[in-house]
Amino acid sequence: MAPSLSAIAQKADPPVFNVARATKKMYKAIYQLNSDDDKKIKATLKNIQNALDDPRLKGKIQIELIVHGGGVALYMKDGPYQAELEALLNKGVILAQCENTLRERKIGKQQLWPFVSFVPSANGELIIRQADGWAYIHP
């Protein structure tokens, strides 16, 4: 009589886990934010900070945060995120805003922090960065 599947599963050794190693000289990641929800904004900022703090990636990562749609709230001067944005900027994170969103929402560039960069479209930026090998992250 053949052993049951549960008997085989109990005898099998658990798979060996090997943590990913950062063997490349440089890694690139683009994070997308298209929500004005404070929890999503904070989660995105935290995710970026976690990547920057990962000891495997120290000095080996370039990050861009592309914002569009409701995410424009992150970059508004009247918003509460200036300190977090400046901290990321000081760590080399590119902070980019979709110009389509600004036109559609009738928001002037002067309403955003002066350290924000602009791209014609967030979708175009995502397409180009991914084609160039950037990891795409949408928390």
Rank of each mutant, 00 (worst) to 15 (best):
P3F: 12
P3G: 09
A7S: 10
A9Q: 01
A9C: 05
A9E: 12
Q10I: 09
A12F: 13
A12M: 12
A12N: 11
F17D: 15
F17C: 11
F17R: 11
F17W: 12
A20D: 14
R21W: 04
K24D: 05
K24C: 13
Y27S: 07
I30E: 00
L33A: 09
N34I: 08
S35W: 05
S35P: 11
D36P: 10
D38Q: 08
K39T: 05
T44I: 08
L45Y: 00
K46V: 11
I48G: 00
I48Q: 01
Q49W: 02
N50A: 14
A51E: 03
L52I: 01
L52E: 00
D53L: 14
D53M: 13
D54W: 01
K58Q: 10
G59W: 03
K60C: 07
I61G: 01
Q62A: 08
Q62N: 07
I63N: 04
I63R: 02
I63P: 01
E64K: 00
E64C: 01
L65A: 03
L65P: 12
I66V: 15
G70T: 14
A73I: 07
A73L: 13
M76Q: 12
M76E: 08
K77L: 05
P80H: 08
P80K: 13
L85P: 11
A87G: 09
A87F: 05
L88C: 03
L88Y: 00
K91W: 09
V93S: 00
L95H: 00
A96Q: 02
Q97F: 11
C98H: 02
E99Q: 12
E99D: 13
E99Y: 10
T101H: 08
R105Q: 08
G108N: 12
G108A: 15
K109D: 14
Q110E: 14
Q110T: 15
Q111Y: 15
Q111N: 09
L112P: 15
L112W: 13
W113F: 12
W113G: 01
F115Q: 04
S117K: 11
L126A: 10
Q130P: 05
Q130F: 13
A135S: 11
H138S: 13
